[in-house]
């Protein structure tokens, strides 16, 4: 489903990603862990080209994005066409820490917006799609409300519905519960767990180790711009082999599986 080879990303002189290789299978849920500033968001944002990689290839469904232009260290560099990237983003859902809902639109309009303006579907069909997705996240009764009237957890579920309305092949989640009050985290994680069990391909950046442990098929640990360790959640979270992972997990001393 997703195939990343030798992904490099620097911001000016700051090297954030240093040659990441990753294959994600269809239907897989992969959790991405790592300390703050280790480049988790950057990696996720490269996958839908919110950031352009410095070098390295990204392919979805066997289709390579961009045109080869040269070499950077041991990786190939690419030039991207904005229209191709827009089309790509339309097939990859992304959910943000701050929800990023559109405040001037109702919940229903928010969820309709993608199918309506990006896919150009008829308004009536978009409404049906949006209603369906809102039902899925349990917020159909909030359709006519503006996002500012909802709790953080509800807003985040609307954001998930808005992404799902595009019928994406992959969903990317970037610390989507980090700005929520503790009592609202559960409802969002439940929605994501459901999505995962329905077979959605998911990349999840999170500090919720419980979620990673119970829901992820695989856990990756990002450190110093590379994947320091990966494997089944039981292995990585219970028996970490490398020092950075051990150090990271020791920060969660009150965590029990």
């Amino acid at each position: 489903m997703i195939e990343v080879k030798k992904l490099y990303k620097s911001f000016g002189s700051l090297d954030v990603l240093h040659g990441i290789d990753l294959v994600v299978e269809k239907g897989e849920t992969v959790c991405l862990l790592g300390s703050s500033g280790s480049g988790k968001s950057t990696f996720l944002r490269c996958l839908n080209f919110m950031e352009h990689p410095t070098a390295g290839s990204i392919a979805f469904d066997g289709k390579l994005l961009g045109r080869e232009t040269g070499l950077h260290l041991d990786a190939t560099t690419y030039k991207y066409d904005e229209r191709e990237l827009s089309r790509h983003r339309a097939s990859v859902g992304m959910v943000f820490q701050q929800f990023n809902l559109f405040p001037h639109m109702t919940v229903l309009q928010n969820v309709m917006e993608g199918p309506l303006t990006v896919k150009g579907h008829a308004r009536r069909d978009c409404k049906t799609i949006a209603r369906h997705q809102l039902e899925r996240v349990g917020l159909i009764d909030k359709s006519e409300v503006y996002p500012s009237r909802l709790s953080g957890g509800q807003q985040q579920r609307v954001a998930i519905a808005r992404s799902l309305a595009m019928e994406p092949d992959v969903m990317l989640f970037d610390e989507v519960t980090s700005s929520l009050d503790p009592e609202l985290v559960g409802e969002v994680l439940d929605t994501m767990q459901e999505l995962s069990s329905e077979g959605m391909t998911m990349m999840v950046v999170t500090h919720e180790l419980g979620f990673a442990y119970h829901v992820a098929d695989r856990v990756l640990f990002l450190h110093d711009g590379v994947i320091a360790e990966q494997g089944a959640p039981e292995d990585v979270l219970k028996n970490p082999k490398t020092d950075p992972v051990k150090a990271f997990l020791s920060g969660f001393n009150n965590f029990h599986f």
Binding site: R89, F102, G114, T117, V118
Partner: peptide
């Protein structure tokens, strides 16, 4: 910026983002 990003992540082109999301606000 989050508004641009939300719109962009849906696959909107710059023109659509401007017209549908940014300008109305």
């Amino acid at each position: 910026r989050s508004q641009w990003e939300g719109a962009k992540s849906l696959g909107m082109t710059n023109l659509k983002m401007m017209r549908r999301i940014i300008l109305p606000q």
